[in-house]
Design a protein around this nucleic acid. Structure first.
Lengths: 143, 143
DNA sequence: CGCCTTATTGCAAATACTTGCAATAAGCAG
DNA sequence: CTGCTTATTGCAAGTATTTGCAATAAGGCG
């Protein structure tokens, strides 16, 4: 399952999968809606009163940075967060041979971050598709 | 001139062009860089000590909503703002309102370089189009 | 110009979010 | 399972941002 895959990869990168992080991620993953930090805090602390609001904020920041959450500015006084389903389905489509390559999140996330940063535009990760010429076709063209 | 045009249009929509708003807009327009709320406050209050920080925040929100400023979340503890000059070339297409924004080369060039380097894929710069939600629709989506 | 309506401001208080630091616990090695 | 290293947490205090409300002033009208 993709979810587990991501999570385990993160552990290998030296991040720790704490109870708090899992609780928050699971909540957002099972909830279909955006949630604000304090809604999340309220939900989680219902069953785990020991959790701290500062931890919620820090965890949300972290989950956003590693690409598991989207951060949404709805123009109100708070930010909202939602689980980033299918965060890595991007494609490079070759105009010559039609081949489609998948590319990893990191590159696209960098682009998305740039765009959000500079234009306030939240690019939809499900529709990123770049056209061009793949490595093989480029090589072939050179003879 | 586009700037004046915009501004006058706003007045017709019932907004008031106050000294505070003009000062802040001019500052950002003449400054090439991003600025945080308190940097702006510091600058403006230098010559206009009567200005209030809350007003700065409210004005920034307003300028952002009417599309004259971009709001930039650089992942630090504060938000930054920059004047929304007309950019060039590629497009960001809003799935909500259909609006097309042009984005500048720099961002795309960075992406292209990344992709060429990591995938040997030469992305065609003329066909970059990203779908998503524009700043205004994101702000408007007040649910 | 002077009056009127009401959007906007300034102030102060409230709320949202971040951070320093000591204590805790995840994950690895033995 | 046990001990060690250090990422992460909780707490409390700090900083950033928003908001209610009375006072001010922009812009329209005569």
């Amino acid at each position: 399952m993709r979810h587990h895959h991501d999570i385990q990869a993160l552990r290998k990168q030296g991040f720790r999968l704490t109870r708090q992080r899992m609780l928050i991620l699971e909540l957002l993953r099972s909830s279909e809606r955006h949630m604000t930090a304090d809604q999340i805090y309220a939900e989680v602390s219902q069953h785990h009163p020991e959790i701290n609001l500062a931890t919620v904020y820090r965890t949300l920041q972290w989950l956003h940075q590693v690409g598991l959450l989207r951060k949404i500015d709805v123009g109100k006084d708070r930010l909202e967060y939602e689980y980033a389903h299918d965060a890595e389905h991007h494609h490079l489509i070759c105009k010559v041979c039609g081949d489609q390559t998948q590319i990893d999140n990191h590159v696209i996330q960098t682009l998305q971050a740039h765009i959000l940063e500079h234009y306030g535009f939240e690019a939809d990760p499900d529709h990123v598709a770049l056209f061009g010429r793949c490595a093989q076709c480029r090589a072939a063209e050179t003879e």
